[in-house]
Amino acid sequence: MDHTYKKEHTAINGNEIYYEFFKNDQASQTFVLLHGFLSSSFSFRRMIPLMTKKYNVLIVDLPPFGKSGKSIRYKYSYENMANTLILLLEKLNVNKVILAGHSMGGQISLNIAYLKPELVELTVLLCSSSYLPRMKKPLIYSSYLPFFPVYVKRYLGKSGLEANLQNVVYNREMIDEEMRQGYLEPFLHNEIFRALTRMVRDREGDLDQQKLRSIQTPCLLIWGEHDRVVPLSIGKRLKEDLPHAELVVIPEAGHLIPEEKPQEVMSVIEKYLNKVHA
Rank of each mutant, 00 (worst) to 15 (best):
L125E: 00
K91W: 12
F22S: 05
N24M: 05
A82L: 09
G224A: 06
S159W: 14
N13I: 05
F187M: 08
N274V: 11
I112A: 06
Y131V: 09
P146H: 11
S267G: 05
F147S: 10
P258C: 10
L273K: 03
G235C: 02
Q209N: 15
P149Q: 11
Q209Y: 13
D25W: 07
I72W: 09
V265C: 02
Y144L: 09
P117H: 03
I86F: 04
L161D: 01
I140L: 12
I175Y: 07
S233Q: 12
K67W: 01
G235W: 00
L115P: 06
L212Y: 09
N24K: 01
K116H: 09
V230K: 00
L165K: 05
C127I: 07
V249I: 15
V124I: 13
N190Q: 15
I215S: 01
N171I: 06
E178W: 09
L207N: 09
Q210W: 12
A113Q: 04
G224D: 03
P146C: 01
G235M: 05
N190M: 13
Y74P: 13
T10D: 10
L242C: 04
R194G: 05
G106L: 11
K75Y: 08
V265N: 00
K137R: 06
I222S: 04
E118V: 09
L110V: 02
I215L: 08
N274W: 12
E173G: 14
V94I: 08
V32M: 01
L58H: 10
E191M: 07
K53L: 15
A195Q: 02
Q216A: 12
Q166P: 00
H277V: 06
Y272R: 07
V276D: 11
N95A: 13
L58M: 10
Q209P: 06
C127Y: 00
R154A: 11
R213Q: 12
S109V: 01
M47S: 04
P63V: 02
A253R: 02
Y74V: 13
K7N: 10
L85A: 08
I98V: 14
V152G: 01
D2N: 14
D208K: 15
R228T: 05
A11K: 12
R172A: 10
N80L: 11
E252G: 09
R172G: 05
N24D: 04
A100E: 01
I250G: 03
L256V: 04
E259D: 13
V200G: 02
E8Y: 03
P146W: 10
L161P: 00
H226C: 14
S233R: 14
G101C: 09
E260Q: 07
S214Q: 08
G157L: 12
N111C: 07
R213K: 13
P258G: 05
P251N: 07
Q26N: 15
K70W: 00
P138D: 05
Y170W: 07
S130Q: 06
D241Q: 14
I234V: 13
S267F: 07
F65S: 04
H244V: 14
S159P: 02
L50T: 02
N13C: 08
S267R: 14
P64I: 05
E20T: 07
L119E: 09
A278P: 05
D241H: 12
M179P: 00
L132N: 10
L184H: 07
I234P: 00
I234W: 08
K211A: 09
A11Y: 06
E20G: 04
F65I: 11
E173K: 11
S43Y: 01
M174D: 09
Y155C: 08
G14R: 01
V150H: 11
